[in-house]
């Protein structure tokens, strides 16, 4: 691979959810994205329940086809605010649940940190995409959320599934549907 291919394109593409196969195919590792539309939060506990429902052939609490899951658990909103701080959590903990969700139509995931080999392969197989948001920038990211509503598993508190409406949510493509991994590529570059 030529060195020039490793340098990400700094001009972000604007995308809206739900994502189509064609939109996903056009994304490459390192590409900046500004995402708008609905995304659903889910962390460890919510993933365990979602996958349990799939295994029992029960309907999921939202139509997952073409949708994007954000691995996040926000802080409570102060009065007058839409949401509290809302940055990404470590994605790797969700790896054990992810292939089953991709198989039923999940198209995108937002988090931080590397995915397992199994998930990277499933992303290719199901034409999906894994984005990173900047970890620890939850205050800044909260300004791109215009609506927030708990739609399932309210008893889980911050781990409940929240339906967020986001505008120009800043992301970077980590794993694209051709098997490229921006974490691996980025670390091989040298900055002296």
């Amino acid at each position: 691979m030529k060195a020039g291919n490793l340098e990400p394109n700094p001009d972000p593409v604007r995308l809206a959810t739900p994502l189509s196969n064609e939109e996903v195919e056009n994304l490459t590792a390192g590409q900046r994205v500004l995402l708008s539309g609905v995304v659903y939060t889910a962390r460890d506990a919510a993933h365990a329940r979602l996958v349990e429902m799939l295994r029992r052939s029960e309907p999921l609490p939202f139509d997952i086809s073409g949708q994007v899951i954000y691995y996040a658990g926000p802080t409570p909103a102060r009065p007058g605010r839409v949401i509290g701080s809302v940055g990404p959590t470590t994605s790797g903990r969700m790896d054990v649940f992810t292939t089953e969700l991709l198989a039923v139509g999940l198209k995108g995931m937002i988090g931080k940190g590397e995915r397992s080999r199994e998930v990277v392969d499933a992303i290719v197989r199901h034409k999906a995409v894994y984005f990173a948001a900047t970890g620890g920038a939850g205050a800044l990211l909260s300004k791109r959320v215009v609506a927030c509503e708990v739609i399932a598993f309210e008893d889980l508190g911050c781990e409940a599934i929240h339906r967020l409406e986001v505008v120009d949510f800043p992301l970077i493509v980590i794993n694209d549907c051709r098997g490229r991994d921006f974490y691996v590529e980025a670390r091989s570059r040298k900055f002296s």
Partner: peptide, 12 residues
């Protein structure tokens, strides 16, 4: 932003 809007630096 966290300081001026009194929102946690990180959600965790």
């Amino acid at each position: 932003v966290a300081l001026s809007e009194q929102v946690p630096i990180c959600q965790d």
